[in-house]
């Protein structure tokens, strides 16, 4: 049997923007996903401090939420974002990778509800959190 994580990882790598950000899917479960992104100078938002732009963290959280929906046993196929809210708690520490973890905590025939958190090396203090609604699409 092909490893589910490997398959999901290949799927993420086939997304051009995920590739551009250097996203790596590190875990996939039933309605759960974890993605990491290495520090990259091209993604800096404040050139004086070297802090990664919030937009790059948003893009990561969105990808991670989508992966969590697709990994849910009740999700038959693809998904698209209906709405996503991001709360920014603090700046990510320059030089460190960012890790996001998303959970699809409820799913209906048409809508999936997802929450996600982004952290750096200090995993006790979130960098950002997200919550959103996603479509559930047939194959």
């Amino acid at each position: 049997m092909v490893d589910k994580t490997d398959l999901a990882r290949q799927f993420i790598q086939a997304i051009p923007h995920a590739k551009a950000l250097g996203l790596d899917l590190t875990h996939i479960g039933e309605g759960e996903a974890e993605i990491s992104m290495p520090y990259n100078k091209q993604l800096i938002g404040d050139p004086r401090t070297g802090v990664i732009h919030g937009g790059a963290v948003s893009a990561m959280l969105d990808t991670c939420c989508g992966a969590a929906v697709m990994s849910h046993p009740s999700a038959p196929g693809g998904t698209a974002t209906i709405d996503l809210r991001i709360d920014y708690m603090r700046a990510a520490t320059p030089g460190q990778s960012i890790r996001t973890r998303a959970t699809c905590y409820h799913i209906t025939r048409n809508v999936a509800f997802v929450r996600a958190t982004a952290t750096d090396d200090d995993s006790d203090r979130p960098v950002a959190t997200a919550s959103g609604a996603f479509t559930v699409e047939g194959r």
């Binding site: 997304i15 051009p16 948003s58 893009a59 990561m60 969105d62 991001i86």
Partner: peptide
């Protein structure tokens, strides 16, 4: 973000 449609990544839109 979706090479099959194709469509711009939702994260890019947010950013």
């Amino acid at each position: 973000g979706n090479p099959f449609l194709p469509a711009i990544h939702g994260g890019v839109t947010a950013a």
